[in-house]
Write a protein that binds this DNA or RNA. Structure first.
Length: 323
DNA sequence: GAGGGTCAAGTCCGT
DNA sequence: ACGGACTTGACCCTC
């Protein structure tokens, strides 16, 4: 797909360690500076776009490549430079103020390399560092001194074989601001809803209703006791669910007015691994009605591949008056 | 300009 | 043991 100039302005830019290592130091630093300026501006622009949407859609995820190679051992020094930090502090503070003015809920979703429950202590240590990078950005934007201000969150999975106990240990390595912003999401495979609820006394829980379906075949309901426990974990802040659907090209003949039956699909030979893949759009109206039943209590964060279009169409389905 | 290979990092599943 | 998925693919380089 072609990327227009206006798309480039809202999309983040990035680079690679290999590329930076091939340049002179001055060239590499210039590139990092330019990317930093571009990416912060792109968040500011996205904020204006999202801030003009109806309230149910006023949220977005900031890419983890906002400040590339922040924790990479050869290049991290760049992000410790006082002039660089002063720039981030000034520009991101303005972004945070604007988000609060426009009532836009922002999130980070660190990569799969953040594994706070890993059996390898060095990976846990580096995961905490990577998490603190996101926390630095949040702090510059004015978040972290209180519990999920404006619904802000930095969401991770409970990655690692040590599970809930390992995750608790990982939390202890984090700064107070990080602990105010971290959320943990249930997985399809590794750690399900029961596992993340085991840390809900320390950490707000993001319920991914599609992951839970893949794992259990259950269409969990908003009045379920476990869902109430998820809500409690947010301590009064409006919680969020993640919503996605299995790829439309996989279930091409499926009735869009009928929720897929996991047991039946597995019997027909569909593999969980394939069913995990997210669709481009919210093609199943029955699933949409199910997801929208959470709307009174939860923000619904859309994980369809065509994010903005998907969420707009879903919002139209919820109430045409909203959009 | 198009298209294909590359990319810092962890974990788990399927073969 | 190893490739692939996860992941809001983007970027670089070659042709």
């Amino acid at each position: 797909m072609r990327v227009s100039a206006s798309d480039r302005a809202v999309n983040g830019r990035s680079t690679t360690v290999a590329w930076l290592n091939r340049q002179t130091q001055a060239q590499a630093e210039e590139r990092l500076w330019n990317i930093m300026e571009h990416n912060i501006q792109s968040v500011a622009l996205m904020l204006e776009i999202v801030g003009a949407l109806p309230p149910v859609q006023r949220m977005f995820r900031i890419g983890s490549e906002l400040l590339p190679v922040y924790t990479e051992r050869h290049w991290r020094y760049f992000w410790q430079r006082p002039d660089v930090r002063a720039h981030c502090e000034r520009e991101l503070a303005a972004v945070g103020r604007r988000a609060r003015e426009l009532d836009v809920r922002m999130s980070f979703h660190p990569g799969q390399f953040v594994c706070l429950a890993s059996v390898n202590p060095d990976i846990v240590r580096r995961s905490a560092e990577e998490f603190e990078y996101h926390t630095d950005c949040a702090r510059w934007m004015g978040y972290g001194s209180s519990w999920h201000d404006q619904g802000f969150k930095i969401n991770v999975h409970m990655s690692g074989r040590l599970g809930a106990e390992g995750f608790r240990n990982g939390l202890n390595l984090l700064s107070p601001e990080a602990r105010n912003l971290i959320t943990v999401e249930n997985d399809e495979m590794g750690h399900g809803l029961e596992d993340v609820l085991a840390v809900s006394d320390r950490c707000a829980v993001v319920l991914d209703i599609h992951h839970h379906w893949i794992r259990t075949g259950e269409y969990i309901q908003p009045d379920d006791a476990r869902v109430l426990q998820v809500m409690d974990s947010w301590r009064g802040v409006r919680p969020a669910i993640h919503y996605s659907v299995s790829r439309e090209d996989l279930l091409v003949d499926h009735d869009s007015e009928c929720k897929p039956d996991l047991t039946q699909l597995l019997q027909q030979g569909f593999k969980k691994q394939r069913l995990r893949a997210h669709s481009d759009f919210y093609w199943n109206q029955a699933c949409n009605r199910w997801a929208l039943s959470f709307l009174p209590k939860f923000d619904i964060q859309c994980e369809s591949k065509s994010k903005n279009l998907g969420s707009t169409l879903l919002a139209q389905a919820s109430d045409p008056a909203l959009v």
